[in-house]
Design a protein around this nucleic acid. Structure first.
Length: 210
DNA sequence: CTCCCGATAT
DNA sequence: ATATCAGGAG
């Protein structure tokens, strides 16, 4: 089986196992999605959702975040971890949104990654989920699973992204990444993956070997 | 490559 | 006790 044939089979199996995937972060605007995603670094989405439930009532737009008091914002998001970096980045990011983008979230990779705290993973998620563009979102789950399945041998997230872009149809890329996250949480966990009950084990090079 | 960092599962 | 959680910056 070629890589593309395996991707086709993979898609069939993932669609059956995870038919209703979506971003598990709660948000109501593009800005909220951007901020929530920035905060989700090395932190569970469930924790971010607890924080943002009150955070987004206190700070309602880019201007509110841009004018936020640093120490106060630190306290507001402390439980997310890396809170000093994240608070600083949120403020800098929103100041640039105000100064350069009229307070709106831009829709290109170049513009998004020019914002503080916004790398390719966050940018791709915004491009895909907010603007409906093709996007390969390489987070910890996507990287781990792509490697285990055998779709890449690279460890660098940008290289993994390029590998997946080559072999996955553009209209399926974002959906597959969401499915990888769901699969990574429920079955293909970092420690002790449940290969015995894995719905995609027939296309996985590492089945039973992790 | 290292640092940032609290919360949770194992 | 330790690994891991939808990463990014210096």
């Amino acid at each position: 089986m070629t890589k593309k044939e395996r991707v086709l089979k993979l898609r069939e199996l993932l669609d059956k196992a995870y038919p209703d995937v979506k971003c598990s972060l709660n948000y109501t605007t593009p800005l909220e999605m951007l901020i929530a995603t920035q905060m989700s670094a090395q932190c569970t989405d469930a924790r971010v959702n607890i924080i943002t439930e009150t955070l987004f009532k206190k700070y309602r737009n880019a201007e509110d975040f841009a004018n936020a008091d640093y120490d106060e914002l630190c306290e507001d998001i402390k439980s997310a971890g890396f809170y000093r970096n994240k608070a600083k980045n949120i403020i800098l990011c929103c100041q640039r949104l105000i100064d350069v983008y009229g307070g709106e979230v831009p829709d290109t990779m170049e513009d998004l990654t020019s914002l503080a705290g916004t790398g390719r993973k966050t940018a791709n998620l915004v491009l895909g989920d907010i603007f409906g563009k093709p996007a390969v979102v390489v987070d910890t789950h996507c990287k781990r699973i792509a490697k285990r399945i055998g779709l890449t041998t690279n460890d660098d997230p940008t290289k993994v992204e390029m590998d997946l872009k080559k072999i996955v149809p553009s209209d399926y890329q974002l959906r597959m990444c969401h499915q990888f996250v769901a699969h990574g949480r429920a079955v293909c966990t970092a420690r002790n993956p449940k290969c015995a009950v894995c719905p995609i084990k027939e296309v996985c090079k590492s089945a039973g070997k992790c």
